[in-house]
Design a protein around this nucleic acid. Sequence first.
DNA 1: TACAATACTGACATTTTTGTCACTAAAGAC
DNA 2: GTCTTTAGTGACAAAAATGTCAGTATTGTA
Lengths: 120, 120
Amino acid sequence: MVIHYKDKTFFTGKDLALSIIGGRWKISIIWCFIQQSPLRLSEIQKKLPDVNQRMLIRQLRELEDDKIITRFVYPVVPPKVEYQLSEIGRLLEPVVTSICDWGDNFSDLLEKNDNKTSVD
Amino acid sequence: MVIHYKDKTFFTGKDLALSIIGGRWKISIIWCFIQQSPLRLSEIQKKLPDVNQRMLIRQLRELEDDKIITRFVYPVVPPKVEYQLSEIGRLLEPVVTSICDWGDNFSDLLEKNDNKTSVD
DNA sequence: TACAATACTGACATTTTTGTCACTAAAGAC
DNA sequence: GTCTTTAGTGACAAAAATGTCAGTATTGTA
């Protein structure tokens, strides 16, 4: 199987997937949408205070380009733009939840080992 | 919940997880181990020809530091070193498979749309 | 005419990640 | 002493990702 996408060639769905969701903040952004949808830019900013606006917008554009999220502009003043997951975007939920689950497992393990080696 | 790990602070297991498996080749490396284990460096290189050796070793070191994989050196000449997933590393399987599954879905979608819009 | 609030964009700096090249280590065989 | 093979390391270059800052667009209201 060979996949051509945006001038690049991928030999597995996995590699294609990684190229799409591999961005620094992509999974975190998608996680926001799984919790609440739709979301305005300003709302995502509140949920992800560590991401600066410029970066956030860039990642949103990429996700939009890849059809993971949709963007809807309301013709009002002040401007209002709503983002939400597309159908294929919503299918990323198992990816995000499995990452969360593993992270929780890993952090439990850290705690256990910390207690084991702690000195008082 | 606050997690301190390697001089950094994480507020969710997800963020901790992303910091550990977020490296450029980490998921691909873990995927190799899910397919076959243990693996020698030279074997991983064959499976991931796009990763140069220096990079591969660096990613392996990071995974080892994070206790995702173990490294066993056989005291022989020429040197023989075997890597394999640790217990917590093996728990990454659902993460990897969900990414693969989603990628396959996405690539199916691409194909469908290509056919729809193709001209002959 | 100036101001408001939201959602941007452009140019550039900085940081991080990745890649390259040349080199080392190990110890038995010759 | 030199060669072999596998698995590395160090120093540096290049590229990519990310961050910063200042600025634009919109149009109803004061």
